[in-house]
Amino acid sequence: MTKTPLPETASQTAGPYVHIGLAPEIAGLQTPLPALGAEIADVDVPGLRITLEGRIFDGGGTPVTDAMIELWQADTDGRFAGADACTPGFRGWGRSATDFETGLWQFQTIKPGRVGDQAPHIALWIVARGINIGLHTRAYFQDESEANASDPVLLSLTPERAATLITQQTSKATYRFDIHLQGPQETVFFDL
């Protein structure tokens, strides 16, 4: 008894004013709603405190300054919020916007643990003017080369393409992840 599935609602671009609805405070806008997604892990949640930051470049090499980016990650034991009994105070979800001038986006979070056979990673979702359907990608950690070497997602890619998903460690607790939407350095984007 197979019923034809209903067609999924079509995506449309979030447009240049996405901040009004989703990231007003981050973007320095006055709107009635306080922003959601600022707290990824409360202060008492165990794990290494890290900063994940970067910029998003278009096909012409220009930083995108009107994007919104969402984060979804496991806790330090590899458990996702909402799925397992994970650490109280750990939401595992965050929202950031690219700075209107510099294009820098940033998350203050904890370093995730391994998830099953997967290396520690942070899932990112990017929307902006000119992006018709949100782009899924992943940030892996430069200092986890052993785990990265056996990660099924990285292994499904050529080494050159997989390299676009590896963060650069710029200080002990800061990881840089630049995203290239188009061109020779293009980041890998996924169909989930």
Binding site: D58, G59, S156, E186, F189, L192
Partner: peptide, 11 residues
């Protein structure tokens, strides 16, 4: 300038 050129990779 914002559309990826490569096809999406099936996760």
């Amino acid at each position: 300038l914002r559309a990826p050129s490569a096809p999406l990779v099936q996760m």
